[in-house]
Amino acid sequence: MSLDAVLVVAAALFAVGLYGALSQQVVVMVMMGLELMVNGVLLAAAGFWWFMAPAPSGQVLLLVVLAAMTVEMAMGFAVATLLHRRRQTDMTDMAEDLSR
């Protein structure tokens, strides 16, 4: 187990999540992709902390990443609810106009 190995695994998780975030049409599935990407960031941060500078203050960064995951998920669910309520859909293609 080394930093290189941890980072390669984190990169794989990030890449898989990126594929999901770009390719999926259902809002909830897009959120799953984003979660996988943040999951990779979390693992990379944990690896950096352990193998480079294991001071306690570094762990606080991981807590912030976890908080970011929570916020992303909560706002994603809220937007999915709003989209379903207003347009009776859960597909990103039906909400393309929101990106303009």
Partner: peptide, 10 residues
């Protein structure tokens, strides 16, 4: 397991 399960999601 982590990566394979991540791939399985999609």
């Amino acid at each position: 397991v982590a990566v394979a399960a991540g791939v399985a999601v999609f």
